[in-house]
Design a protein around this nucleic acid. Structure first.
Length: 496
RNA sequence: GGUCCGAUGGCCGAGUGGCUAGGCUCAGCUCUGCAAAAGCUGCUACAGCGGUUCGAAUCCGCUUCGGACCUCCA
């Protein structure tokens, strides 16, 4: 433990900020609930995956060996043709005349594309629910054996009341079983249940259901919560370190997961640190598929959506999200995105400035206190992954770099290297930001060389006080989306 | 209705008892042929009311407003 800097995590289970101590250091097991692949992911979904991308990246940065499991939910929602026309999934499958697995493949691909665009690291294992039917049946049998489930008309339900006698149903979400009973709404298909609180482990499929498997109880499909219990256990063991997901999954999904694991093994607390990311909101309301206030990455980049004044790059969005803490709600707005865009630009151009900073031997500058900056960064991330604080420290470093550049303060090569290491570690490795070549793909070597040449010619014109030519070049390049920055040392260009 | 969370400057967004993040915007200055960039300076806030305390944005109570979950949802 001593070899790792302290990391505190807000544990949803205990509602406290706790020192993170993995079960088997240096190994860490982390499970995150992935998407249900029946439609395009939207920006709100992206936020949650970003949160755990940061967790994953930071744990790796600290030197942990992380096994990151994030599932693909590809069963449980795909019903067949029905007259109701209200089930969007089945409607989609029917309209597009697709096999359910084609729908799954299509949106899994989309999901992966989105993850790539936002520079999310791939998980170590990405298991799918349909690939673990056998294991799910096995877990149901274990739960039945222990008496926490019952069969009803070919389906199997989890007996919440029975479970609650031996364990505590509601530990995670802070719910009392009696309150739940009073507030449970009546839903279809509850007549098979002994108690409205009970939830399905296995559902018998009706004839219209397209995805179904044989089981000891019926031809059917697994319940919605079971896959996560099964796959986390399979790949991370009966007890593991971190389980993450969006806040909206806390109840009932994660509560049921806890119940299933405990019900199957008689061992409670399979997860040591539960982490929940907060919601992305639009005008104060949760971005959700049902609200219709989400948008796809393509819409985001092109700006082709009613909510978007214009397009924003994925890194702008990533940076925008990281300027808020994952556990707080974050409100989407064009103004905030635009502010983030400028801030990110300033951060990135400071990196370029740093690269070109001259160094002088034996000119170690005592004001350049990289140790202090580094300590503040570690402390920020160690305090429940506080990326906003981290970013504020990075901007202090930006200011330092810019001051050095504009005041011509001397630093030595070691200090420069340390600064570069700091930036590279936090900006690229941990925050996962990337330099974005904006513009339309004309960023090849030739065009760069041409730009260098033009800037040089303009420099000559400036030397000759030929302001007309110099300004003509600057204006023309500006119209092409290239801006020129002058300084005493000369001029540089960059794409807007 | 139940459970929980929140209300911070022009905007976004950290911060949980004294040391008053950061980004964006705006104004002034420096630099500059001009501009941009960069630097410096300024704008100093914690919904309202009461309480605890030497001291509260931070703790407690009440009020108002907002949100999440209770149903698939990241």
């Amino acid at each position: 433990m001593a070899e790792f800097p302290p990391l505190y995590i807000q544990n949803s289970l205990t509602r406290k900020k706790e020192l993170f101590t993995p079960l088997k250091p240096p190994h860490v097991g982390m499970y995150v609930c992935g998407p249900t692949v029946y439609s395009n992911v939207h920006l709100g979904n992206v936020r949650t995956f970003l949160t755990f991308d940061i967790v994953y990246r930071y744990l790796i940065y600290l030197g942990y060996h992380v096994r990151y499991v994030r599932n693909i939910t590809d069963v449980g929602h795909l019903t067949g043709d029905s007259d109701a026309g209200e089930d969007k999934i089945s409607k989609k499958a029917r309209l597009e005349k697709l096999e359910p697995m084609e729908v799954v493949q299509k949106y899994t691909n989309d999901f992966h594309d989105v993850m790539r665009v936002f520079n999310m690291k791939s998980p170590s294992i990405e298991p799918s629910a349909t690939g673990h039917i056998v294991e799910q049946i096995g877990m149901i049998e274990a739960i039945l054996d222990r008496g926490y489930a019952y069969q009803s008309n070919g389906s199997v339900y989890f007996n919440v009341r029975k479970y609650n006698e031996d364990f505590d149903y509601g530990v995670l979400s802070g719910r009392k079983i009696d309150d739940l009973i009073n507030n449970t709404r009546s839903l279809d298909g509850q007549d098979e249940k002994n108690d409205p609180l009970d939830f399905a482990l296995w559902k018998k499929a009706d004839s219209s259901h397209l995805m179904k498997w044989p089981s000891p109880w019926s031809i059917g499909f697994p319940g919605w919560h079971l896959e996560c219990s099964v796959m986390s256990t399979k790949y991370l063991g009966p007890q593991f370190d971190i389980h993450g997901g969006g806040m909206d999954l806390k109840f009932p999904h994660h509560e049921c997961e806890i119940a299933q694991n405990a019900g199957a093994t008689a061992q409670s607390h399979s997860v040591r640190y539960w982490m929940h990311g907060n919601m992305l909101t639009v005008n104060g309301r949760k971005m959700a598929k049902s609200e219709g206030n989400g948008f796809t990455p393509e819409e985001l980049i092109t700006g082709n959506h009613a909510l978007l004044e214009r397009g924003y790059s994925p890194m702008t969005v990533r940076f925008f999200m990281l300027q808020g803490h994952y556990a707080s709600p974050l409100d989407f707005s064009n103004a905030a995105l635009q502010a983030a865009e400028k801030g990110l630009e300033r951060l990135m151009s400071a990196l370029t400035t740093l690269e070109t900073l001259p160094t002088k031997a034996n000119s170690r500058n005592p004001d350049v206190d990289i140790t202090s900056l580094s300590d503040r960064c570690i402390k920020a991330m160690g305090d429940d992954f506080n990326t906003p604080i981290l970013i504020s420290v990075l901007f202090d470093a930006v200011k330092l770099v810019n001051s050095i550049a504009s005041d011509h303060i001397a630093i030595d090569a070691t200090q420069k290297a340390d600064l570069e290491e700091l930036f590279n570690g936090y900006v690229f490795d941990i925050l996962g930001l990337m330099r974005e070549d904006k513009g339309s793909g004309n960023n090849n070597v030739e065009s760069s060389a041409l730009l260098d040449l033009l800037v040089k010619l303009r420099g000559n014109a400036k030397s000759n006080k030929d302001w007309q030519t110099a300004d003509a070049i600057r204006t023309a390049l500006g119209e092409l989306g290239i801006s020129i920055k002058d300084s005493k040392e000369g001029s540089t260009w960059e794409r807007d």
